[in-house]
Amino acid sequence: MEGLKECIARPEAAPAPEPGALDEALARYGWCMPLRLLRARTTGVEDPLWRALAPWRAASSLCQQQPAAADFTAFSSDDLIERFLREEDLRIVAQEGDASDDDVVMEARLDDDDRLVSEELAAIYLAQGLRSEAAAIYRELSLRNPEKSVYFAELIAQVENK
C-alpha cells in the first residue's frame, strides 16, 4: 500500500504499480477515487465509476499533466513583462503638454510664515531650559490643533509656572 500512496502523491516520480496491486487495493478501498484514477492511468482503461461521478465532482489534479520545468524557465522576467504589455497594451505614456516640470516638487518649500513646530521640539527646548520658546511652540500647536487646545493650555501653564 505504501507504493500506491507514493504513486498517488507523486505519479511522475514513483514507479508504475502492478495492476494486481491496484485491483487488490480497490477491492479493499473501493471508495478511493485516486486509486481508481491511478488504475485507469496505468491500464489505459477508463473506470466506469470514475466516469459516472466525474460530472458531480471537481476536476482532479491527478488528471492534469505535470508541467515541465523548462516551461517555467523559458522566458526571463523581462520577456514576460514585454509579452504582457504587447498583449494588453497597458503602457502609460505621457503626452505632450500633459505635465510640466514645475508640477513635480522634490523638496519642501517653506515660507517665513511656516515654522516647524512639534511637541518633540518643545521638549527639546524645555530640556535646554528655553521655556519661552517651548511655550511659543505649544501656543502654535494649540492654534494648529484646536481639538487639543486644552491639552496644550495645560502644557503652557506647566512651562510658565516652573
Rank of each mutant, 00 (worst) to 15 (best):
A27G: 13
C7W: 12
P55D: 00
A40Q: 10
A14S: 15
P48L: 03
R39E: 03
A59N: 13
Q66R: 11
L22S: 04
P19D: 11
M33R: 12
A13M: 14
E24M: 09
T43F: 06
A13F: 15
P67W: 13
T42M: 07
A25T: 08
S60H: 07
Q64F: 15
E24V: 04
P48C: 02
Q66C: 09
G20L: 11
G20K: 10
L26Q: 07
A25S: 11
W31G: 12
G44K: 13
A14E: 12
A25V: 02
D23T: 04
I8G: 01
V45G: 04
P11F: 12
P15Y: 05
P48R: 06
L26Y: 05
R51P: 00
R39H: 08
R51V: 00
A21N: 09
E46V: 01
S61H: 08
Q65G: 10
E12V: 06
T43D: 07
R51Q: 10
D47N: 04
Y29N: 05
P17H: 03
P17T: 00
R28C: 06
A40S: 12
T42W: 07
C7N: 07
S60Y: 03
Q64A: 15
E18T: 04
A52Y: 06
L26S: 05
A14C: 07
A40F: 00
I8C: 05
A68N: 06
C7E: 10
P48A: 08
G44Q: 14
A27Q: 10
P19W: 12
L37W: 05
D47S: 02
P67L: 15
A54I: 00
A13D: 14
A14V: 03
L53A: 11
A68R: 11
P19Y: 10
P19F: 02
P19V: 01
L26E: 10
M33P: 00
Q65A: 15
A16Q: 12
A40V: 01
A21I: 05
R51D: 01
A54P: 00
R57E: 09
I8A: 05
Q65N: 11
A14D: 09
D47M: 02
A52V: 01
A9L: 15
A21C: 10
A13K: 14
P17E: 06
A14F: 08
E18D: 14
R41P: 01
Q64R: 14
P55C: 00
A52L: 13
Q66S: 13
R36H: 08
L49C: 09
L26W: 04
I8D: 05
P48N: 04
W31R: 12
C63V: 02
C7R: 12
D47V: 00
A54V: 00
M33Q: 10
T42P: 00
T43S: 10
P55Y: 00
P55H: 01
T42R: 13
P48D: 04
D23K: 06
E12W: 13
E24I: 03
Q64E: 13
R28A: 14
R10C: 12
W50T: 02
E46R: 13
A9E: 14
V45N: 08
P17C: 02
A52S: 09
A21K: 10
P11E: 12
P34I: 02
Q65M: 09
E24W: 06
